[in-house]
Nucleic acid binder design. Structure first.
Lengths: 220, 220
DNA sequence: AGCATAAATAATAA
DNA sequence: TTATTATTTATGCT
């Protein structure tokens, strides 16, 4: 299902500058052409320009794109779709490939106006069709989105006390086992390798959170 | 910011049975009183009963609750709020404590009709008020929700090649370091402890995913 | 243009 | 509910 396309197409990178809001404020006080010299700025940067109603930029209605992006996210969530699903479905139906990152960047307006302008109608059309299928039943939507008709969330694993004891012993010796070590541990305990890997990950997180609390002495 | 309220109010636990859909199908073929004997079933279970329009259960309109739950999630997301934020805000304004899990369970209808009936008006009222504040500006909403006005996402950490090498060495020795070990590693590398902890977590995930792919020989 | 992965969020076993 | 597992989103980099 989640097979990543490994096409490494080399293209000229847009060189997007991602300034912090605080930086923006400082810069905008200089007024006029705040970002970059004559180069590419993201839609998000352009629409947040304070003075003068942000209308068109090279004939592109930025405000409209901003509005659509916000709307798109809500409609996507209403359908219960993830960015990954949208990207994969688009890759399957439309010509070019669309990564999860691309969808994310569009929603956050972290792209150039030109790119946004090109992507907008594609998303618009696809989403409208998806909503149509959804009306006919969720099953149809999932079929349209492609792949797994109703991929259920993996059942949460329950470790036996014995297994946890063994895992903790390993963890104490080494909290960050190598892939091979994980494989061996999984084999020994007869659990899925991925499950074992995730256990280690979460164990670390827990540890970190616990430490954090202790620092503030909220403990007990 | 994320200090968990440690109030341990002991109440009669609902004892919710959570059967899988596949199990449901088998059981429903027996028709009438499909779930449990005379005990508590979740709203989700009750509304998915196939025959007979699912009307009231002990005077509670289940269909209405289902509708509201779905709507609640969409409205929450439209406001850009997380389950955690809602829970914390409710804990602050309403009497009892509401955890992220509680909100999650309500949205998934993984609660008893009685609990849902009790929670629904609370959520309804709070959400309506939140939307009101949101109309006056996002800043007001964040203030209403409480705490951080605009908590920004942590900046993505970039590890130096040297640091990664050291981390990998530790990981190979032990993929699941203890809290103390993490602290020491973080100190040695001069990175934030939390950052190191998360590194290990994600490293495990990567490993797991890689292993998975190898199994299917999709590699290269 | 998108991979790799850091960080955040949701779901669930206990 | 809490503690933990699993999934999703965001972003540094090339």
């Amino acid at each position: 299902p989640s097979t990543q396309a490994a096409s490494a197409v080399v293209s000229q990178s847009p060189v997007v500058i991602a300034p912090q809001p605080s930086v923006m404020k400082t810069v905008t006080s200089l007024s006029s052409v705040p970002i970059a010299c004559g180069d590419t700025a993201t839609v998000g940067q352009l629409v947040s320009k304070p003075q003068q109603a942000v209308g068109d930029e090279e004939g592109i209605n930025l405000e409209e794109i901003r509005e659509f992006a916000k709307n798109f996210k809500i409609r996507r969530l209403s359908l219960g779709l993830t960015q990954t699903q949208v990207g994969q479905a688009l890759t399957a139906t439309e010509g070019p490939a669309y990564s999860q990152s691309a969808i994310c960047r569009f929603e956050k307006l972290d792209i150039t106006p030109k790119s946004a302008q090109k992507l907008k109608p594609v998303l618009e059309r696809w989403l409208a069709e998806a909503e149509l299928w959804n009306q006919k039943g969720q099953q149809n939507l999932m079929e349209f989105v492609g792949g797994e008709p109703s991929k259920k969330r993996k059942r949460r694993t329950s470790f036996t006390p014995q297994a946890i004891e063994v895992l903790n012993t390993y963890f104490e010796k080494n909290a960050l086992p190598t892939g091979q070590e994980i494989t061996e541990i999984a084999k020994e305990l007869n659990y899925d390798r991925e499950v074992v890997r995730v256990w280690f990950c979460n164990r670390r997180q827990t540890l970190k959170n616990t430490s954090k609390i202790n620092v503030f002495q909220v403990q007990q």
